[in-house]
Each structure stands twice: as C-alpha cells, then as structure tokens.
Design a protein around this nucleic acid. Sequence first.
DNA 1: TAGATTGTTAATCGATTAACAATC
DNA 2: TAGATTGTTAATCGATTAACAATC
Lengths: 215, 215
Amino acid sequence: MKAISATVINRLPRYYRYLGELLENDVIRISSKELSEKMNVTASQIRQDFNNFGGFGQQGYGYNVSYLYKEIGKILGLDNNYNVIIIGAGNIGQALANYSDFERRGFYITALFDVNESSVGKKIRGIEVLHMDKLEEYIMKNNVQIAALTIPKAKAPQVAASLVSFGIKAIWNFAPIDLHLPEFVTVQNVHLAESLMQLSYNLKTYNEKKEKKLK
Amino acid sequence: MKAISATVINRLPRYYRYLGELLENDVIRISSKELSEKMNVTASQIRQDFNNFGGFGQQGYGYNVSYLYKEIGKILGLDNNYNVIIIGAGNIGQALANYSDFERRGFYITALFDVNESSVGKKIRGIEVLHMDKLEEYIMKNNVQIAALTIPKAKAPQVAASLVSFGIKAIWNFAPIDLHLPEFVTVQNVHLAESLMQLSYNLKTYNEKKEKKLK
DNA sequence: TAGATTGTTAATCGATTAACAATC
DNA sequence: TAGATTGTTAATCGATTAACAATC
C-alpha cells in the first residue's frame, strides 16, 4: 500500500466532524454531492479522498453515514485508547487537561508534569501534576505513547529528546520551535502565534482591498 | 497585483520565526541555500516565495536578515497594533489571555467576555472579564477588529454573527465548527481535536509499519 | 428495468523543483 | 574581473476537477 498524502489526511478529521454531526441528526445516508454542498468542497474530491482507503460507498445509494464515520475513525486510529501526558502545567497545559472532550476520541490525559515545585501535587480535573523527576518511571509504567509539550521553547528540544528516550512515540508540540527528532517519532505542531499571523495577513489584505475601492 | 496563494502565506510565519532567531544570533546575511538547509525546504521554494512580493535579496550576496525579517513582518501586518478581545473566559480563553507573547507581535488583548456571572469582574494578567452585555459597546468604543472565539460550539455561530454585526473583522476560532460569515470576515480556525487526530493517524501508521517489519 | 451515484480514469490546474541568465 | 547567488523561466510533479463507465 502506498502512503496516503498528508493533504488527504489533513482533511479526514473534518469529514469525521461533519459525519458525526449528521449522525447526531439521525441522517442515515448521504451522497458525495450532498456532503460536498455542506462542506463546501467538490464531490469529486470527496470520492477521491475516500477511495484512497478503498470504497466505502455504493453506486446508486451513496454512503452510509454510520459506517463511513466508523471507518474514518478507524483510519485515524480513534478506535484505540491512548494515554497522554502533558509536559508543562502552565496555562496551555492546564487548558488541555481541562478539556475533557479528547477522551471521547480515546485520548486519556493521565498526568501533567512540571519542574515548578509550587504546581507539583496540584490536581486539574482530578489529574495530578507530577514532578519531572518522575517522568521516565511514569512513561515506562503506564504505557504512554503521546506527550503534549507545553513548555517554553528554550527547554523544548532537550525535553523532547528525553521524552523520546523514555519511549514517547508522538509529540503534540505547542512550543514555537521545530523539533528535530528521529524519523520514527510523530510530531504534530500547534503554533498559535503563527496562526494569528496568518489571520493578521488576511485581515490586512482585506482592509487594503477595501481602501483601494474607496479611492 | 494578483492574490498570493494560501500555501505561500502559510509558510511566511515560519520564515519569520527562523529569521527572528538568526537576528537574535546576530547573523547579518543569509543565502537561500543556507536558509533552505536550516529550514529543510528547497532554496528554490524560498526564492519563489519571496519573489511573490518582489525581490528582497541581492545577487551574489543573498538576503539581509534584518531587512528580510522586517519586510515579512510588514507583509504579515505585524507593523500594526491590533486590539484583540477574547470571547469565553474558560480554560482556553484564559490561557490565551495569559500568553503575553502576542503583544510582541502587535496583538493586544484588552478584554475577555463571558456570560458566566461568576467569572465576570475577574482579572487575568490584569485583563478584565466583562459581561457579554457589554460586548457591542466595548467593540465600538475600542476599535476592536479581532476576536478570539473560545466558547462551546453550540453557541459559536450565533455569537460569531453578533461579533460581525458589532464590527469585528477577523475571528480566531477555537470552537470545533465551521463558521459561515460574510466573505469580508477573516476566519482563522484552531481545531485542536483535529490536530490530535492527525497526530493519531501518523502514530498509528508508524506503529503498523513497525509491526509489519517484525513479522 | 431506469435512475442514481459511486469508483476510477483522464484532463486540468497549481505548486514545487530545476536550470540558468542576469547582476551584484 | 571572477565568483556567488538571486530572480525568473521552464520542466516536473502532485493535487484537484471533470467525465463517464460500472453497478447498485
């Protein structure tokens, strides 16, 4: 099986979200055309995307919403449960810990870690903040594969390397830096400042367009 | 001037970040080749990207780091200051309010809004939480163009529509839903759950590859 | 069977990379 | 001037869209 391109993968969670909503509204079946109108993409793209993984539909009928939803869930690995730890019990770390919705998708946040003595021992939504000293032992004992990294960028490379050496396989990186890790480690970046800059560009570009028209 | 493609814009903040780091390290000039090695992209792409906005370099010399940094900043609109409000003083809203780094880029968070009486009146890093009743008046009086939306998805569409009617031009949307707003409104989504699913896919795909090898 | 809609091939479009003339 | 490196054109690659035969 040849690798699926990242552009396709990036679209899957959005399909999953729309299908979940259809399911909540008791929609049984949907055609690529109907879905394309809801999602504002082409029907052709939808069919191409799904056919990367084999056909999920039926000619003349369309797609069974419940079946398609589950299949995409499987592709994304949402039929598994994962233990997730959060490195850095600062604002973002705590916000993530408080967000209980991830559990619905199989991501269980089981602990936070921090070097700051004053936050160690605290509990966030029942999840304990442990000292970084305990990191290695905890990862080993609890079969943790995923770590969210919410620490300042200066410390991120070194801590990321430690995580990998302790057995972490995927890092959800919130630090504004590119991590250089072995190729078998998955890194998913969330760069909020960069997202805000993109917003800024679009805002500025629209404002300029408007000014031109006024002249 | 023809519109610049979104793929190019999405790369600009990353260039900006690398150039900022070079600047901190007192690097005066850099060639597309050197930068390409640092950033792990092709030199050709770097030159193509920059030339969308006119030439910033000089044959035989390369690019002046400080000049290029400032120019990209201008393109991204970082030479302006913006007032930003946060709608929803929950975990993510508070985390954003606490993140003082946005100010360095010209984004000043000046207020949070919430319907929850118990959080109204609180201060986060000195920034007051106001009641949603005050929203319209506040936006009008304080020339607010950008709002971060950190409320549950059920309320997001209606609140977003209000924001636009009060004069907001750009929404930084953290709610897991697609907002349907007039085309002159910029929407920048941060869908954390979808980011985590992409991570999950990559983790799963690597694990499967490994299993195959073992057999 | 007739109608609908997929799965899939072919055509188009856009983005990336390569190549090199221009020029500092 | 010689060497370096950009700016830019041309070639390639990949992603999207269109079209339609297969089939439920």
